[in-house]
Nucleic acid binder design. Sequence first.
DNA 1: CAGGATCCACGGCGATACTG
DNA 2: CAGTATCGCCGTGGATCCTG
Lengths: 138, 138
Amino acid sequence: MSLTDTSQHSNCSAMSDVLNRIGDKWSVMVVGMLGRNGTLRFNELKRLINGVSQRMLTLTLRNLERDGLVTRTIYPEVPPRVEYSLTELGKTLQVPISALWDWSAENHGAIVEARAIYDARETAVAADSSRKIAYARG
Amino acid sequence: MSLTDTSQHSNCSAMSDVLNRIGDKWSVMVVGMLGRNGTLRFNELKRLINGVSQRMLTLTLRNLERDGLVTRTIYPEVPPRVEYSLTELGKTLQVPISALWDWSAENHGAIVEARAIYDARETAVAADSSRKIAYARG
DNA sequence: CAGGATCCACGGCGATACTG
DNA sequence: CAGTATCGCCGTGGATCCTG
């Protein structure tokens, strides 16, 4: 099975299934963070990932653990300590995610630019048809 | 700027921003389809991408167009014909997405397996504490 | 054929409060 | 510290109908 052969209709559902998890913003963040830092505690992750709520971080970690991408290690101490890290499977996922990350860093500017151009055109078109809209409204 | 350097806190927002679009399930599908088939019409895409509604396909294509990833070509015929294809920027995105796609195809089985194991353990734990739950409910 | 407009349900997600 | 439980909003997205 060649690499370019993987995108037949048959694999659409598999891709879809996988995307439902890893296509998730927080999951990508968590994998990215764990991939770089190796092992992190719950609140360390929470601090590193900007804007994540404690609820979403918990859910994300649970799903990643369930999918065999992240290990969860509980240390029976007080105060409690729980450490997260990537499994071997998770580390392999880190590769394509890293590629995506790099692409983002490199092309974010181009996207912002494209949006500006598109929006400028759109507002121009909107202004052009403003009379018709106003007419229809009145 | 090295590749491994791209995941500092600074790029978190850029990645987040990009992920909001390309992390989207349908966007990935569209890019994947266009990347393989080159140029596709609206309904061709709709047929190829299983489960997408016409509304979501429209929105997805608009966003991709706005981000400069997809071109939209209207042929003033009757019946109307609109063709979509990837821009150069879109083609570069196709690379990391393809990597993700390949990863999905290759590791989907492992994920399903991991889920089964996890769920089996969870239901076992749930059964274990069923009395306590029943007690609390009663 | 390609899509705009509208309606509506549902669930994702944040905020908050509580626990071991 | 690392969660669980509950509530409530509102955005997402499907279904449906209509147009050029």
